[in-house]
């Protein structure tokens, strides 16, 4: 663990990542072993493997990392985290990088932020989600062509009663919204 007194020597980007990730201080212990990059089911699709990303964070290559697709290719399977010999919370760092990229407006290259937004908008409104509806809505607005490809399977799902058209609404939506509003407000504070 980095003693707080040593944190001053880290790159600014590293400091920010640590500040935004619970347990993130461990990242300074990365051995560059590549267990994470070798394990990731989506490693082959990433611009930079997680390992390379950690080297770039240390080297303060902020834009190159935040504009990369790496974290957007992460599906939170936690395989890297389970295997990292230094017990670095890699998946949580991927979440932090997603948040930073959105916050700094650098996530342009990926559809994933839009998908995430569609999803949480629904939850904000209804308190529950309905994943297929969300997927459809997302595709409709963002990738109309792929809707056509879905065709058959989508229809069968509908026929089997597995495709809801509206989400259920919880009773105390107001309460949930109050909580969300407060949390948003608090997170803007720092």
């Amino acid at each position: 663990m980095v003693a707080e007194s040593h944190a001053a020597h880290l790159s600014q980007f590293m400091k920010d990542v640590i500040a935004d990730t619970p347990g993130g201080q461990k990242v300074v212990h990365c051995l560059q072993c590549g267990s994470c990059g070798g394990s990731c089911p989506n490693g082959s699709e990433m611009d930079f493997t997680p390992r390379a990303v950690f080297a770039m964070i240390a080297a303060d290559r902020r834009d190159a990392v935040l504009q990369a697709n790496t974290m957007w290719q992460c599906v939170s399977c936690y395989l890297c985290t389970a295997r990292c010999p230094q017990e670095i919370p890699i998946t949580e760092i991927m979440y932090a990088l997603k948040r930073m990229a959105i916050r700094e407006g650098k996530a342009g290259g990926s559809d994933a932020p839009a998908l995430a937004k569609t999803f949480t908008d629904f939850v904000d409104r209804y308190g529950r989600s309905f994943e297929f509806g969300i997927a459809t809505r997302y595709l409709l607005f963002n990738k109309p062509l792929s809707m056509l490809k879905m065709g058959g399977a989508g229809m069968s799902m509908f026929a089997k009663g597995r495709l809801a058209l509206t989400p259920t609404k919880i009773r105390q939506v107001k309460q949930l919204q109050a909580i969300i509003d407060k949390a948003r407000e608090l997170s803007n504070e720092d």
Binding site: V75, A116, G127, R171, I179, S187
Partner: peptide
């Protein structure tokens, strides 16, 4: 009673505090 969505992976990608609170 009256449970709400767990946020899947999506809230954590946007705002950790909102995710945790929800």
């Amino acid at each position: 009673d009256d449970w709400n969505c767990c946020g899947a992976t999506e809230y954590f990608s946007q705002n950790e505090l909102v995710a945790t609170s929800v």
